[in-house]
Simulated assay, not measured.
Amino acid sequence: MRAASNRIITIANQKGGVGKTTTAINLATALAAIGEEVLIVDLDPQGNASTGLGVDRRDRASSTYDILTNGASVSETAMQTVVPHLSIIPSTMDLLGVELEIAGEKDRIYRLKNAVQADDARRYSYILVDCPPSLNLLTMNAMAAAHSILVPLQCEFFALEGLSQLLETVSRVRDTLNSGLDIQGIVMTMYDARNNLAQQVVEDVRSHLGEKVYRTLIPRNVRVSEAPSYGKPAILYDLKCAGSQAYLQLASEVIQRERSRKAA
């Protein structure tokens, strides 16, 4: 049995540039800052979550590629980051070939699930999976392994169109691969209060999805954009900037939702 407090949250959206990796890094950092043991699983071949947490590409001796192809364990692949209480299983470009390499394997959808549900993953109270911007085998592995999905959604005109496709995929995954999969929440990113369209998009998404949408809005913020180039989460790079403060608020909402779920 998995430890009761262990929660696996997949951060997914098939659209690129919506803030998935930024959300994964900063949400994980905020959770680690209050003493939770947190693990990020970097499933994006670009490896931006790994880079954004200061893990040099030359130091990625083991990675998510080894979990998906060689059956490597969490303890064999996880690395400590610059953030106390936060580890990461890094990504490499080798992930680009995974789909072809394991296409014929019966358990190909459950490779990640097998790893994060093993005994050595119990030490983490939260496992956040950062997905690539596509609905491919990597993302399916993440959805099959997760308890819930957190969806970053950019405040732009086509946001709802992309979201409906993702929600349909989640529904299919629930029916076929993972009956317990739930939507942890929708977080609106790159919000600009001066932009009337951004405000309208937030209102539209909330009218469609109600309480599934977090109250916290993640603003467009230069300091958040700068932080990855220094190999740090924004929360470490500039705690007081608007983006960092928003991610701290988001972490508080995530924790509150988890408490409400347990109490239900």
Rank of each mutant, 00 (worst) to 15 (best):
K106H: 08
I89R: 07
P84A: 06
E105G: 11
Y124M: 12
P133M: 09
V116P: 04
L95Q: 06
L150M: 14
A115N: 01
V83K: 13
A121C: 10
I109R: 13
S91C: 03
V129M: 03
I109G: 00
M140W: 03
N136D: 15
P90S: 12
K106N: 12
D119T: 08
D107I: 11
I88M: 14
Q80D: 15
S125W: 08
S91L: 07
A103Y: 07
V129T: 12
H85T: 10
N114R: 14
R123E: 11
H147Q: 07
R122N: 15
E105S: 12
S91E: 08
S134P: 03
N136Y: 00
V98I: 13
L128N: 09
M143C: 02
Q117T: 11
V98D: 00
R122Y: 01
K106C: 02
I127V: 08
R122V: 01
V82A: 15
I88R: 14
V82K: 15
L128C: 04
I109C: 01
S125F: 10
Q80P: 05
H147N: 14
A115C: 04
D130S: 00
Y124Q: 09
S134M: 08
E105D: 15
E99D: 15
V129L: 12
S148P: 03
L95S: 06
P132N: 01
D119M: 02
N136G: 15
D130N: 00
T81K: 07
D120F: 04
A145F: 06
I127T: 01
A145K: 05
A146T: 06
H147I: 03
L128Y: 01
A115V: 05
P132D: 05
K113F: 09
G104K: 14
L138W: 01
A121S: 11
L100R: 14
N114D: 12
T139W: 02
I89N: 06
G97H: 11
A142N: 02
L95W: 11
I149R: 02
A121K: 04
N136T: 11
V116R: 08
A146E: 09
I88G: 11
N141S: 01
I127L: 02
I127A: 05
I127G: 02
P133V: 06
L100K: 07
I102C: 10
D94Q: 14
V83W: 06
S148D: 06
R123I: 07
